[in-house]
Computed example of a mutant assay.
Amino acid sequence: MSIGKFLVKRLLQGVLVIWGVITIMFALRAVSPGDPANLIVGPAADPEIRDQVREQYGLNEPIYVQYVDYVQGMVTGDFGYSFQSSREVTTMVLERVPATLELAIAATIIAVVIAVPLGVISASRRNEPADYGATLFSLLGISTPNFWLGLMLILLFAVFLQDPMETYLGFSFPQGRRTVGFGEAVITLVTTGYAGDLLTWVRHITLPAITLGTYFTAMITRLTRSGMIDEFGKPYVTATEAKGIPYVLIRYKHVLRNTMIPIITVLGLQLGTLIGGAVITETVFNWPGLGDRLIQALNARDWPLMQGIIVFIALGFVLINIAVDALYATLDPRVTNE
């Protein structure tokens, strides 16, 4: 199968996934108790006003008509209007996307910077204290709930150690909502040369990124370790050692390089998972991303906004998966035959 046909197949599968998500979200809204009109105008409003609202939002139409209109709106990018704020859902979603992407990418960078060297050390010093320490770290990272870890990091660094850090290091990690985004900070740095906004952004994102990336770090560490151990047992390593090539060169140029293909695949797939899994972390740290807005929509039972956010997250996850499949098919053409 050619790469083009392979990607078309993946794209069609992605369309089916998105359609399934849209259908499930509509079904959940249809079977949930309560009248959406009461959420918009309040239960004490006059019946005439509630009838006008139902007609305005198409809530008085048969369920199949509502479903068709709902799917058509999603296909054209019209997610409707928020019940709570009467703003376009598309606008409310897109304005929170940069913050979520910043957090997911920062968590990925932290995970890679820590996990790959740790996995290399663990594989190179198998059954030694360094290996046991890396294995214990991986176990703790996978087992620790990120909401608990986030709360502990806030208590430790933003509360108990705030004054000592200010005194001895000259900075501390803030407790409140961030005041500047990455794009704004970079623009300020480029146009004025002032780096204060960028440093403020770094201070705000450090603890959330560590919290979100801990599980990812542990997983990549274990993947790197197991991949390198598997590569060390292959004949080409023995052959290169017999030629007198230095062990360090074998480890990094050959073994680690061959281990990176599955790691790159997992990196791409987990980026989509991080975007969807940032809900709890954003809530704990009051981070102004999609997760924070989704929790607000859930509390207000704002169905159009909830649907828009979840469909957007699913769309992002599918697109990232297709991109990873394309990269993997380029690196290893054998996958196109699967």
Rank of each mutant, 00 (worst) to 15 (best):
V324P: 01
N146K: 12
G34P: 08
R125A: 10
Y236L: 08
E166S: 15
G291M: 06
D69K: 12
Y328M: 10
Q270A: 10
T23C: 07
S2E: 07
P47R: 07
L198R: 00
P174A: 10
R125W: 14
N337I: 00
W19M: 14
L156I: 15
L139S: 14
T211K: 04
V68D: 11
P33R: 03
H204S: 09
V41Y: 04
L161W: 13
V279I: 12
Y247A: 14
R87P: 00
P235M: 09
T179I: 13
A45C: 06
I275S: 04
R203L: 11
M260V: 03
V311Y: 01
P62C: 03
A106D: 03
G316N: 12
S82F: 03
Q296E: 15
T273A: 13
P304R: 04
Y168V: 10
N60D: 15
T238Q: 14
I250W: 01
K243P: 03
G119L: 08
N258H: 11
G170H: 11
A329S: 08
R225L: 04
E102D: 15
A37C: 07
V318D: 02
Q84D: 06
T90I: 11
L136N: 11
V113N: 08
F157V: 10
S32N: 05
A278P: 04
I264K: 03
T23A: 11
V116M: 09
T214L: 15
I22E: 06
I229G: 05
E61D: 15
I109C: 13
A314H: 07
E48A: 14
V248R: 15
Y67H: 03
L153R: 13
M1N: 13
R222F: 00
A239E: 13
L207E: 02
R334Y: 07
F160P: 06
I205R: 02
A115Q: 09
I22D: 03
V279E: 01
I110W: 12
P262I: 02
I24V: 15
T23D: 03
